[in-house]
Design a protein around this nucleic acid. Structure first.
Length: 439
RNA sequence: GUGGGCGUAGCUCAGUCGGUUAGAGCGCCAGGUUGUGGCCCUGGAGGUCGUGGGUUCGAUCCCCAUCGCUCACCCCA
């Protein structure tokens, strides 16, 4: 073997493509059922559009494209592959001040990250995003949660948890623990976010290493460590926090209630004060959905980013969105027992007996297609036996045999693959029969 | 960027305490039917044992390097 895929990428062979397309169709239908409209943006953006939006780590993971031409300095990059769909959307919003607000769009496209691949992570993967721009209403945040939840259910998922938090609560907590700058706040978040992974003591140790004083959090800390019910925890925070933290608590309470009114099962929603989310641009509620297999990682994530559009254009525009990870969803989909294999694209295979009957077979194929039957004409020089075997293996519902006898009589011999029934009919009768069977 | 595991047929994997022609199952192709597919029988194709070097009389096996894959850390969909 001397030819390889680029690290972290995959080919999608027909069978996998059918699974992917079906998933994308399902997700898109849910997005549109909420009134989101389609958008596409280029695979690459100007480097200054992408840089500094996600955080220091993410900047390193961005695929950069070297500047071309005589004026380029060695190593200089002026373009980069998009890292997510949120920043490109923000760019679109910044450039199109005439968009009617609130602007709701869906976007399903690949993104690229120069990570070391591992389970559930790739260097090229597809995100399925919905975002609402131009609204500060908690209803917008709630709708993002509700649409993600609806998409997951439409895909057949049942075991997942939607964790929610608000960046402002984290900001307040970070300040209580001694953070005095945005950078320190982010450092605090990174440590706190590891709670479910390294445990309470691990986080405490890491916070101390990063120069914080977790004991200053007092009772708050014990509440975070052993979260009681969502409402009890919100109440605790409400009693203790002040300033923006309080705003966060209020908003979150409204968002959770609104999401439930929109059909999200309350038992799936959990307030998790340790949820931080990676990107720097979040300003309010944040959310993340984890499936039943934790090793795959989260399957969706999002939040409010009221400052991002303003950073690009100077025009302030609040926005909130959520992103579903197609690869991870499909990984979970395939792990399910009912995953079942996909059949062929076509309904019918027409065999080609020999050169003499090929024209009749071709004309028959045209007639079937005109009636809406997806029809494959056997291309190849296999004998009838091989053609039937091909049809059987692939799982076509119907097979039409057209040899010299049928060609001269204007008929086709129609085989039902499941019943093995074999009938010779006029072409039109055969078309009617297959086309009726499809409905 | 850091660390662990693994590279033998298209796929899943045996195997060789270093020894002559490297195996199985599945898959693929052909024949057993002249125009009829699930099963069965027979036969066949397909491997520089990832690559390069070292040790050795002899390496797929031991050692080193390298490439690739994979898992974990970091971070994240």
């Amino acid at each position: 073997m001397s030819v390889f895929l680029p690290k972290g990428t995959r080919d999608f062979l027909p069978e996998q493509m059918q699974v992917r397309l079906r998933a994308i169709d399902t997700i898109r239908a849910v997005f549109e059922s909420f009134g989101f409209e389609p958008l596409e943006t280029p695979a690459f953006e100007r480097i200054e559009t992408l840089s500094g939006k996600y955080g220091e780590e993410a900047d390193k993971l961005m695929f950069r494209i070297h500047k071309r031409g005589r004026s380029a300095k060695p190593g200089e990059c002026d373009l980069g592959l998009r890292y997510d769909l949120t920043v490109p959307l923000a760019r679109v919003l910044a450039m199109n001040a005439d968009l009617r607000l609130p602007f709701k769009r869906w976007q399903i496209q690949p993104v690229w990250r120069a990570e070391r691949p591992q389970k559930g992570r790739f260097r090229e993967f597809w995100q399925c995003d919905v975002d609402i721009a131009g609204s500060r209403s908690p209803l917008a945040d709630a709708e993002c949660i509700a649409v993600a939840d609806a998409a997951l259910r439409a895909l057949g998922f049942e075991d997942y948890t939607i964790r929610v938090n608000d960046r402002r609560i984290l900001t307040e907590l970070a300040r209580e623990a001694g953070a005095s700058s945005l950078q320190e706040e982010l450092s605090f978040l990174i440590a706190l976010d590891k709670l479910d992974k390294i445990g309470l003591e691990g986080v405490e140790r890491e916070l101390v290493e990063r120069g914080f004083e977790p004991d200053k959090l007092g009772t708050l800390w014990s509440a975070i460590a052993a979260p009681p019910t969502t409402e009890a925890l919100l109440q605790t925070l409400q009693d203790v926090l002040s300033g923006v933290g309080l705003e966060g608590v209020d908003t979150l309470r409204t968002v959770i209630a609104a999401a439930e009114a929109m059909g999200v099962d309350p038992s799936r929603v959990r307030f998790d004060p340790s949820l931080a989310r990676g990107a720097d641009y979040y300003t309010g509620p944040v959310f993340e959905v984890a499936g039943d297999d934790p090793s795959v990682g989260s399957v969706a994530g999002g939040g409010r980013y009221d400052g991002l559009v303003g950073r690009l254009s100077g025009r302030e525009l609040p926005a909130v969105g959520v992103s579903l990870g197609l690869e991870r969803l499909i990984t979970l989909l395939e792990a399910r027992e009912d995953a079942g294999s996909m059949g062929p694209v076509a309904d019918l295979l027409i065999t080609v007996f020999d050169d003499g009957s090929a024209p009749a077979a071709s004309r028959a194929a045209t007639a079937f297609r005109a009636a809406g039957v997806k029809t494959e004409l056997y291309i190849g020089d296999g004998r009838l036996k091989a053609q039937l075997k091909h049809a059987d293996r692939r799982g076509y519902a119907w097979i039409a045999l057209i040899g010299p006898d049928e060609a001269s009589a204007g008929t086709v011999t129609l085989k039902n693959r499941r019943t093995w029934e074999n009938t010779t009919l006029d072409l039109q009768a055969a078309v009617n029969k297959v086309s009726a069977d499809r409905r």
